[in-house]
């Protein structure tokens, strides 16, 4: 029956992963796996890393791996907001720490060669300007 299908969108921040009709969708929610059929009650949940299974109307099954994310269900529509990256609290924490460290390292020094060249060029320009100003002064005075 044509009415017995549900529209599934699996989107991630970096692109659309799947969009199409399905008979049934299985999603790994944080509270356990959810099987979603058409006319499901509206539901919002977070999902954990695992696979999303989509049964298409022609009886085939498609698998998608998601790293986590959020899930929105409306009676005729399922939206999976998938994360592209595997995330866990400590992994995120480590990434944050790395970002802080990079900032500190950068402030501590480690001037690369291009920057050095830029600084030298700027110095030369400033010196030339100074010379010019002194010349002007001499002419005036």
């Amino acid at each position: 029956m044509a009415t017995d299908s549900i529209h599934v969108d699996i989107v991630s921040a970096e692109g659309e992963i799947f969009s199409g009709a399905a008979k049934m969708v299985f999603v790994p929610a944080t509270e356990g796996e959810l099987g979603i059929t058409p006319r499901h009650a509206p539901l919002l949940s977070l999902i954990k890393a695992g696979e999303v299974r989509v049964q298409t109307p022609d009886g085939q099954e498609q698998f998608f791996f998601v790293g986590g994310g959020a899930l929105e269900i409306q009676p005729r529509k399922v939206t999976v907001l998938a994360d592209t990256a595997l995330r866990a609290k400590d992994v995120d924490e480590a990434a944050a720490l790395a970002a802080k460290q990079r900032a500190e390292e950068m402030l501590a020094g480690k001037v690369d060669r291009i920057e050095q060249a830029e600084a030298l060029a700027e110095l030369a320009r400033a010196a030339a300007q100074l010379k010019f100003i002194q010349k002007l002064r001499k002419i005036k005075g």
Binding site: E31, P42, L43, L44, S45, L46, A70, L81
Partner: peptide, 17 residues
């Protein structure tokens, strides 16, 4: 909606994303 686990936790996760 039905919220699983609860709306506050979902909102937190969703806002971060």
């Amino acid at each position: 909606y039905i919220y699983e686990p609860d709306s506050a936790a979902i909102l937190d996760g969703v806002l971060m994303r």
